[in-house]
Design a protein around this nucleic acid. Structure first.
Lengths: 123, 123
DNA sequence: AGATCATTCAACCATATGGTTGACAATTAG
DNA sequence: CTAATTGTCAACCATATGGTTGAATGATCT
C-alpha cells in the first residue's frame, strides 16, 4: 500500500539488533567520536568494535572521515527515519484494528467449540 | 539515561530485519491467519515460514493458538512499542543535536588544515 | 629513517539464519 | 481403522555474526 523506502530496512534493523551497536549509536549522539573512543567502554578488541562500525556504515547509520590518523565517526540518521516510519506506520495501522479485533476474539473464544467453522473476514 | 525495556530489543530488531517476516506482520495486520495462509504468497517451503513464525513468536511479536488442527497466528504488538520507542527517543535526541553539530562540522571542514588540534567538546 | 599510534585486514572459530527435504505428530474426514 | 491435512521436528547445507589474535597499513613524532 504505502511505499516506503524498504531498500535498506534489512540492514538497518539488523544493525539495531545488537546492544553494542545501539550503545555506539547512543555515544555518537553526543557528537563525533573516534573508533578508539567508541571502543573504550566495551570489553572487546578494537577490531571487534571496528567491525561493528563497518556494519553500521554499510547500513548508512554512521559515516567516517579521516582526520589525521584518526577515523572520526558520526551519525547519519536518514536510515533511522526509514526504520521508524516503517514501524510507526504499521503500529498505527494495527492499533486501529486491535479494538475491533480483540472484541472479535473475545467473542470467538467463548463460542469456540459451538461453531467449528468460521468465515474469513477480509478487510 | 532513560531506561527503556531494552530486554527484547535484540530479538525485536532481529525479527524485523527480514523482509519475509515484515511481510508476515503486514499480513497479520489484516487479522488472524493460519500458518498455511501466511505461507501462500511466499516461494518457500512451509517449514521455512514456520521457522520465521517461531522467530517472531520468540520476539513476542506474534502468538499462536490452536484451533483444531490449524495454528492461528495473531499479532502481539507490545514489542513493537519498545522498538519504536527506542528509535524515536534517539531520533528526537539526535535531531536536537544535529543543527548545532552540522554547523560545527561545516565550520571544521573549512578550517580543517589550519587548526590541526581541536578540543573535544563534551556536552 | 625508525618508532609509535590508530585502525583495518586476514584467518580462524563458534553460533545463528535462512533455506531445503523427509519423517513425524495431531487432528479431522471417510 | 485408514487416509488426508496442518504443521513441526531433525538433519543438513551455505552464509552471516560476533568474537579472537597477529600482521599490515597510514599518519605522526622524534
Amino acid at each position: 500500500m504505502v511505499e516506503y523506502n524498504t531498500e535498506n530496512l534489512d540492514a538497518t534493523f539488523a544493525a539495531l539488533a545488537d546492544p553494542t551497536r545501539r550503545a555506539i549509536l547512543e555515544k555518537l549522539a553526543e557528537g563525533e567520536q573516534s573508533v578508539s573512543e567508541l571502543a573504550m567502554p566495551f570489553d572487546m578488541s578494537l577490531a571487534a568494535v571496528s567491525k561493528h562500525i563497518q556494519l553500521l556504515t554499510r547500513a548508512n547509520l554512521v559515516s567516517q572521515h579521516k582526520k589525521g590518523r584518526v577515523r572520526q565517526c558520526r551519525l547519519e540518521p536518514e536510515a533511522f527515519e526509514a526504520a521508524v516510519n516503517w514501524i510507526e506506520h504499521y503500529r498505527d495501522f494495527w492499533a486501529e484494528k486491535f479494538t475491533a479485533l480483540e472484541a472479535f476474539l473475545e467473542n470467538e473464544v467463548k463460542k469456540s467449540d459451538m461453531k467449528p467453522k468460521q468465515g474469513k473476514r477480509k478487510k
